[in-house]
Computed example of a mutant assay.
Amino acid sequence: MNISFILGLLAGFGLVIFGIISSSSSLSQVTQSFVDFPSMYITFGGAIAATVMSVPVKYLKDVPQNMKVLMKREKIDLNLYIDTIEELAKEARLKGLLVLEEKVNSMDLQDEFLKYCVMLIVDAIEPTKVRAQIENEIDCIEARHASAWKVFDTLAAFGPAFGMLGTLIGLINMLANMDTSQGADALGKGMSTALVTTFYGSMLANMVCAPISNRLKAKHDEEMIAKEMIMEGVLSIQSGENPKYIREKLNSYITYKERGSEAAEADGEKSKKSAKRGKKKSEANA
């Protein structure tokens, strides 16, 4: 589960509620000032209705699935992709490109995009056409992913707009029904009720919709980096480049810190293997 998103959401609402309560004289005043059901109907109902009118139904149906993606904590391991591509490069250099079809299906890393790219070079398609086809596939994936945050961007745009609309409705009612005998008290109470819808619209846009949209965009960017790296690796395999050179080329997609940890793990594995070989030799000499 995506703990940082949950903590941020709870902290945001908690701090706003704390600020409201601490600035009010009593809990009853908070309830009277900030809980207004007609304002909720206008702001939330109007924003949702306008969003339903603005985006295709398919985008709305995908919202639950997109929220599941949002709540996943797992991060794409680029080092794992680099190891896989290097392994495929070694196999292609030793046995040819045709062996990659069976190899990619038997590997632990099961990625449909990687399989798709590998099959393009197995089918002996020209490198320029392979690059063009993979880039087209990435563009189509980006277009599909855009529907994930378009719903929330639209809702974030309509929230403050309907909040302002509710404020205008409140002001019109206040001025139409204002009792001049009550003086400034009636004006202040009416203004307070009218401004609640603007508060609801701002909260909907800035505390819910915008963070969800930004997090989905961040996940999309992370996935696109992996796909671009796969494309470069597969094209390098097709060109017959050295596997070690391919690894160094793909290392540019990860940070120096991640490369250092990877090298440390590799050195650890080498030391373990050398220790085992030394132990076997000592046993043989004995």
Rank of each mutant, 00 (worst) to 15 (best):
I246F: 02
E222M: 04
M229Q: 10
L250M: 04
K244T: 04
I230H: 03
S239F: 00
I225F: 04
E228S: 03
I225A: 11
E241A: 09
E228Q: 13
K244W: 01
E232T: 13
Y245N: 10
K219M: 00
I237K: 12
V234W: 02
Q238F: 08
Q238D: 02
I225R: 13
R247P: 01
H220T: 08
A226Q: 14
E228H: 14
E241R: 09
V234D: 08
H220G: 05
H220E: 12
G233M: 13
E223L: 11
D221A: 15
E248L: 07
M224A: 09
H220M: 12
A226L: 09
K244V: 08
Y245I: 14
M231G: 07
A218H: 11
S239W: 00
G233Y: 04
G233C: 09
P243Q: 06
K219W: 00
V234Y: 01
S236M: 12
K219R: 09
L250C: 05
E232C: 09
K244G: 11
Q238C: 04
V234G: 11
G233K: 10
E228K: 15
K244P: 01
K244D: 09
G240T: 11
E232S: 15
E248H: 08
L250K: 08
G233T: 08
D221N: 15
S239G: 06
Y245L: 15
E241T: 02
S236V: 03
E241H: 12
K249E: 01
I246Q: 04
D221H: 13
E232W: 02
K219H: 02
E248T: 02
I230L: 06
Q238P: 00
M224I: 15
H220Q: 15
M229D: 07
E248A: 06
V234P: 00
R247Q: 14
E228F: 12
E222P: 01
I225V: 15
I225L: 11
E232K: 14
E222V: 03
M229V: 09
S236W: 06
A218S: 11
E222F: 04
P243F: 05
K244M: 08
E223G: 06
K244C: 02
M231S: 15
Q238M: 13
V234H: 14
G233N: 12
G233Q: 11
L235W: 10
D221Q: 12
E232F: 03
E228R: 14
E248W: 00
E232H: 11
E222C: 09
E241V: 06
Y245V: 11
E241P: 00
A218T: 11
E248R: 03
G240P: 14
K244R: 12
